[in-house]
Design a protein around this nucleic acid. Structure first.
Lengths: 190, 190
DNA sequence: CTATAAATGTGATGCAGGTCACATGCTTTC
DNA sequence: GAAAGCATGTGACCTGCATCACATTTATAG
């Protein structure tokens, strides 16, 4: 499906926009293609954009001082990704974003998003809605971390996002669950 | 300080509202007083409001099947609290909210917030801003969970919210950090 | 098609933090 | 101000998961 259509469907699920309005909104997005493994945001970068995925799969992640990776989010078509802390507060990226598979995205700058939000009330509403969703999801994940062991969280992840199983390596699943790859391996074998 | 002033300052830090507009917004909030220990939202409740704290301290928390409590958030003056999953999605509360100290809050219904958001663009902007903050904070806490041990998280909490130390019992701090009270005790003694 | 690298499985071992048990100290409340 | 009820400290023991080491299987590039 066309990137434009995917974005349009995504927005219209939440807000009403006529064709002219959507065209105007869409004109602020820049289509970009990336290859598997390409880095979209690297630690230390100035972050000026966020990305709407229309094809493929991204990950956003943090790497600590011991070079251990923690995955914040997988981003499939219809999902958004960026380092939001860096983006909203104009600071350098601490979160990186790269491509798990070849990917197509629509890129919008922070400035353009804010412009659209102030020009079109419905767009502001959309982005409030979107962050609300993200906030609730982050809280749920936090609770799951405190409450459940690795096995439980693994099953939860596969139930919630069965598509991931075929696309994402076990290592990355482990980095999302916050366990070592060895422990994850032992959860279903050994 | 008057509850009204606290809310006004809080809003005006982010958006512009003239006196008439603020008066209109404020008219949708209902002041409420609670005693220490009183429950504002109990598990299973229908959740129709969120609460802006003007005095005292609340906590929002989850209790699992083994009756173990996990604290999602402490809410001090200038903070908001509710079960947002329940509030946004019209489902029964799984998160509870109660009072750590005597407290004064301003209560606004979900319906009224949505009404104000659609009537006054700036109010919608404010609530988008607020949730963005919350989202970023939740992500940071998630990363801290994955990356840091209990001692590190304890120090982080006290650095970020030094006021908590005098108000909140060690048990509750432990429930926020996701460790047992015994382990927390051993972090600074033993 | 082969060589090189990357992902995965599996054993051995160590440790952070959980759980249970009980002692002590601090608050309410009547 | 005595009694009852919480909050905290501390020991003993247990367990889930990390880490290190190495074997094996699966991709990827030339």
């Amino acid at each position: 499906m066309k990137a434009e259509t995917i974005l349009k469907d995504h927005l219209l699920k939440v807000i009403d926009l006529n064709d002219e309005q959507f065209g105007y909104v869409f004109s602020h997005f820049k289509p970009m293609s990336f290859k598997k493994g390409q880095v979209i945001i690297a630690e230390g970068d100035k972050v000026s954009c966020e990305y709407f995925v229309t094809e493929g799969c991204l990950k956003s992640f943090y790497i600590n001082d011991d070079l251990k990776m923690f995955i914040l989010q997988f981003a499939m078509p219809g999902w958004w990704a960026s380092d939001y802390n860096a983006l909203y507060n104009s600071i350098k990226a601490t979160i990186s974003v790269d491509c798990i598979t070849d990917a197509e995205v629509l890129c919008i700058s922070n400035a353009d998003r804010e412009k659209l939000c102030s020009e079109i009330h419905a767009v502001e509403h959309f982005f409030r809605w979107r962050t609300n969703k993200g906030y609730v999801a982050a809280q749920k994940r936090l609770l799951s971390f405190m409450n459940n062991d690795a096995k439980h969280r693994y099953e939860e992840l596969l139930n919630t996002y069965p598509q991931l199983y075929n696309i994402v390596s076990k290592q990355l699943i482990a980095a999302y669950l916050g366990v070592s790859r060895e422990t994850l391996s032992r959860l279903y074998h050994g």
